[in-house]
Design a protein around this nucleic acid. Sequence first.
DNA 1: AACAGTCTTTGACTTCGATCAAAAATGTGA
DNA 2: TCACATTTTTGATCGAAGTCAAAGACTGTT
Lengths: 236, 236
Amino acid sequence: MKVSLLEGSHRQTCTDCAVRGFAICAALDKTEVWELANLSRHVQCEPGTTVFAQATMATSFFSVLEGVLRLYKLLPDGRRQIIGFVLPGDFLGLAGSLQYEFSADAVGAVSLCQFSRASFSRFAENRPRFLRRINELAGRELIRAQEHMVLLGRRSAEEKVASFLIGWRDRLAEIGHAGEVLPLPMGRLDIADYLGLTIETVSRTFTKLERDGIIRILTGGISLLDAARAEALSAA
Amino acid sequence: MKVSLLEGSHRQTCTDCAVRGFAICAALDKTEVWELANLSRHVQCEPGTTVFAQATMATSFFSVLEGVLRLYKLLPDGRRQIIGFVLPGDFLGLAGSLQYEFSADAVGAVSLCQFSRASFSRFAENRPRFLRRINELAGRELIRAQEHMVLLGRRSAEEKVASFLIGWRDRLAEIGHAGEVLPLPMGRLDIADYLGLTIETVSRTFTKLERDGIIRILTGGISLLDAARAEALSAA
DNA sequence: AACAGTCTTTGACTTCGATCAAAAATGTGA
DNA sequence: TCACATTTTTGATCGAAGTCAAAGACTGTT
């Protein structure tokens, strides 16, 4: 397993950070942002690199600046479940356990704000506003996890794929990406491992959705031709 | 849907509360416990009653004193996914959203500590220790949810049932219940909806585990004859 | 003890998604 | 542009779990 973090060449100011408005630091005032910035390191990851691996010591927390990561757990025999995709503004480390509970790797190029566990915790310790912000993000994460359990346990392959597309569209919209052409930076195998399916079933289901006029398959993404029908499948 | 909360006859003191040591209030000192106690109401629920329903206003939070609850989400067509069973010491309301994200009903008789959302939030607001405690519980919840995603997405029926039994045993052990006879207060249908299976598959799998000498089926529970083999299935 | 109601188990059959295999498409570098 | 590797798609077949149906066990009640 290749694990590497390339050091960023320079620190950007937090004030003009692209995710300033919705990242974990949104709860902080100017002085606090400055203080927290001094505890952070800016790192870049190349596509495919593992940022941290399940069951290793959780020495760092991260806030995502750019790019997409996949979070996953492996069974001893190699079966993989992707438990989530992570987007700019998301925070890694909410569970707060001593070891990482899952692995994270960069899907495309990624840049991260890295914090040492100890200094981040010390910073948060006596700041109720910040602690409440952490709670807020953890709550959202928990809700997403619960939704995903319903998907994994009780939905058909077609519903799973439609839900994934709608959910992905909505998350991209939240961070400012509009338009009915959805980029899908992750491969079919990642989608399969996220939905609890095989790559063949995902591929067949994409093809079926295209035959039915619901999507158009593009290289590196899809076009949502009939959002209403996709949403119906996704809700059903 | 029958929704009812019977009012408790008298307030017990928090000091001799059975879950004092591991409930959310474990992070509080004597004065604070007393303050929080004054915001609480003690309620009892009969078996099968719904404590709160998905998509209704989340006006209360709860700490479980006695009994077991099932938390579940329903799809429009009635498919149900149980996202967790809740035991004494667990807290309901960690996600903090304005509406309940899932329904909760009592499996057996249940007694709860009820807090109004507003007064609980006000109490927590400026208490970093308490906020960190909430974070800690939310983190645990999140880890459990992630484990459950792996189970739902990537495990066979036999592995699911074995994992459920081992997980249930471990959670009961955490709250002081020892012994290799496991009470299972929930029915087969609840287990099925928790594991993403049908009741028939759960029943057949129990029978198979019994034929293989791993468990003994009792009324209202099982006896774990070969914990090692069950653990192997559960980990695999 | 007998009854009704519910829950659980078992049996027969079906189906959805998995598996195995190969072709097509896409990307990459000389 | 062409060869090669990787990813995606398609096809044929299989099997684990779902569905439908009925029998059996347990619960509480009169």
